[in-house]
């Protein structure tokens, strides 16, 4: 999730005030003095010692401002890989424009770290707002994978996968917003939920901390079906809170309705707790 910043701080001079430098190697460097454009080609390999970031590509093009000498434009092409520690970004084509404070990455885009991974077609990074927006190819969806804590085996977190029409990443906030036809699959329960919009919060280890779904929430688990307007899934407590017109049907335990319903993620542990003034309605089948 942090990875977009890697590219920025390496090739791209958003942090120019820090005067960081990158060492770049290639097979050839072409400098067009009439335009001021510098093109480095052939197994381009760059490294920023200060940030311990490495980047590789087929070509790197840099353009400096004629007055300030600041890099005003940068472009990378062909099998671009940016790494910093466990974080990485892979794509085909990247463009940075200082005047717009935007970095655009395109083509077979993968952003990730040791705990998460998002696949799509393009991403736009707003360097002022430190926000990344990821989009898929037309008529396709972004694929994502996050890891959640495994209470039984803390060292072996379990994956959660899914798709969405659009993803926003906020590095500093350790937050992501999944938007549009969001589907999340948890193979451990197993469970699946769909929602219009999901806000994801990560902990310090980049593992799933919490998900907040809005714009309708529909979850299916073996023996249980849940619906509500909104929902909060807490991966520390392993509790799900349904909010707004909540309705849960669980085989053998009947149906629960209310404005707020809490239940365990693990269906076997059952539920259920209703809160607020409005009483919850529970229907228990009498066999």
């Amino acid at each position: 999730m942090k990875v977009c910043l890697l590219l920025l701080s390496l090739i791209l001079p958003t942090l120019a005030f820090s005067q960081s430098k990158a060492l770049v190697h290639g097979q050839a460097m072409k400098l067009d003095k009439s335009t001021g454009k510098m093109l480095i080609s052939g197994q381009v390999d760059g490294y920023d010692v200060k940030k311990e970031m490495r980047f590789q590509s087929d070509r790197l093009e840099l353009l400096r401002d004629t007055k300030t000498d600041e890099i005003s434009f940068a472009q990378v092409n062909g099998d671009v890989v940016v790494t910093q520690g466990l974080e990485y970004a892979v794509f085909d084509h990247g463009v940075y424009q200082r005047s717009l404070s935007l970095l655009t990455m395109k083509g077979h885009l993968i952003l990730g770290n040791d705990q998460s991974r998002i696949e799509g077609d393009r991403a736009v990074y707003d360097t002022e707002l430190e926000k990344v927006s990821l989009l898929p190819l037309p008529s396709q969806q972004l694929k994502f994978l996050f890891h959640q804590k495994n209470p039984d085996e803390p060292d072996n977190p379990t994956p959660i996968t899914g798709v969405a029409d659009e993803v926003w990443l906020f590095r500093e906030l350790k937050k992501a917003i999944l938007q549009g036809h969001v589907e999340v699959n948890d193979p451990t329960e197993p469970s699946q939920f769909k929602s219009g919009r999901v806000v994801v919060f990560f902990d310090s280890e980049n593992q799933l901390d919490e998900m907040t779904a809005s714009g309708g929430f529909h979850m299916t688990q073996p023996g249980r079906s849940s619906n509500s307007r909104r929902a909060v899934l807490n991966y520390n407590t392993r509790l799900i809170t349904l909010l707004g017109n909540a309705k849960v049907q669980q085989i053998g335990e009947g149906e629960v309705q209310g404005e707020r319903v809490e239940m365990h993620m693990d269906v076997k542990k059952g539920f259920i707790r209703g809160k607020r003034q409005k009483p919850i309605r529970i229907e228990i089948p009498l066999n």
Partner: peptide, 25 residues
Amino acid sequence: DAAGLLYFLKTEVLTLTLPSIEVTL
């Protein structure tokens, strides 16, 4: 730092071979 150079005065294009570049960001 590079292994060689070629500079066309007409086009003002300078080519350096096997460059090792320190770029100020």
